[in-house]
C-alpha cells in the first residue's frame, strides 16, 4: 500500500540518488535484477516488450488511423466524436488512449500537442515519444512561443493562421490529424499512411510531402 506521502517519496528519491551507482545502466540493472530475482517479472517478458515496441507499436499505427480518416468519411466522424473508441476498430488501444481526442488541422488552423507537467503521450497509438517531446525545452516553450518552436522544426505558418496548443493536463491524450496532401486523389489507405509522419501527428510537422 502506498503511503501517499509526497515528502516520504522525496526522501527515498534523495537516498537512492546519492547511494546507487551513478552509471544509468547500472541503476536500471539494479531494478531489473531485483525484480527478476524476487520473481516479479521474467527477463524474457522485458525482452519481448522491447521487441513489441520496436516492431509492432509505433507511429505506423497512428498513420493508419489518419489515412483511414481521409478515405472513409464515416470513420472520420467516429474518430472526431470519440477517438479512443474509434482506434479500437484497429485494436490499437492501450496505454493512454482511452480518452483520446483527434484534432484536425485546416488551412487556417494548426494544432500542437505538449505536456508541460510531465510527458503524457498516446503511447499505444504512436509508440514511445521522441526525446524532444519529453525535453524540458519543448515542454517549456511549446505553450508560450509555438511559432518559434514550429520554425525550429521547419514549419512556418501564415500570421493569420491560428495555433491551438493542447497541454495534456488530465487523462485526455491528443492526436493531430494533418491535412491530406494535394495530388493524392485515388490513393489507397496504405499508400496514404506512408506519407503521415510521427511529428505531423504531434503537430511539429504540417505539410506532408508526397513521395
Amino acid at each position: 500500500m502506498s503511503s501517499y506521502d509526497g515528502k516520504k517519496l522525496g526522501r527515498l528519491h534523495r537516498h537512492l540518488h546519492s547511494h546507487l551507482p551513478s552509471d544509468p545502466e547500472l541503476r536500471v540493472k539494479a531494478l531489473e535484477s531485483l525484480a527478476v530475482e524476487k520473481g516479479l517479472v521474467a527477463q524474457e517478458t522485458i525482452d519481448t516488450w522491447i521487441e513489441m515496441y520496436s516492431e509492432k507499436v509505433g507511429p505506423m499505427r497512428g498513420a493508419q488511423v489518419v489515412a483511414r480518416s481521409w478515405t472513409d468519411p464515416a470513420f472520420r466522424e467516429r474518430l472526431l466524436a470519440d477517438a479512443g473508441q474509434a482506434i479500437k476498430e484497429f485494436g490499437y488501444e492501450g496505454h493512454a488512449t482511452e480518452h483520446l481526442k483527434a484534432v484536425e488541422n485546416t488551412s487556417d488552423t494548426h494544432n500542437l500537442v505538449t505536456c508541460t507537467l510531465c510527458s503524457c503521450y498516446p503511447f499505444a497509438l504512436l509508440g514511445m515519444s521522441p526525446l524532444w517531446y519529453r525535453s524540458q525545452a519543448y515542454r517549456a516553450r511549446a505553450v508560450r512561443e509555438p511559432r518559434e518552436v514550429l520554425k525550429e522544426f521547419g514549419v512556418t505558418l501564415p500570421a493569420t493562421a491560428q495555433i491551438r496548443v493542447w497541454d495534456s493536463t488530465a487523462e485526455l491524450r491528443y492526436l493531430v490529424v494533418p491535412q491530406r496532401p494535394a495530388g493524392t486523389e485515388g490513393w489507397d489507405e496504405d499508400a496514404l499512411a506512408r506519407l503521415v509522419t510521427r511529428n505531423s501527428m504531434i503537430g511539429t510537422d504540417r505539410d506532408l510531402r508526397v513521395t
Binding site: P24, E25, V28, K29, L31, E32, A35, L40, V41, T45, I46, W49, I50, Y53, S54, H95, G127, M128, S129, P130, L131, W132, S135, A137, Y138, R141, V149, E152, F153, T204
Partner: peptide, 24 residues
Amino acid sequence: AIDIDAPPFREDWERRQWALSKNV
C-alpha cells in the same frame, strides 16, 4: 533550442526501463 533529431531511445537501458515500468 530543441534537439529535434533526438530519437525515442538512444541507449538499451532506456528501452529496458520503459519495459520494466510497464511490466513490474
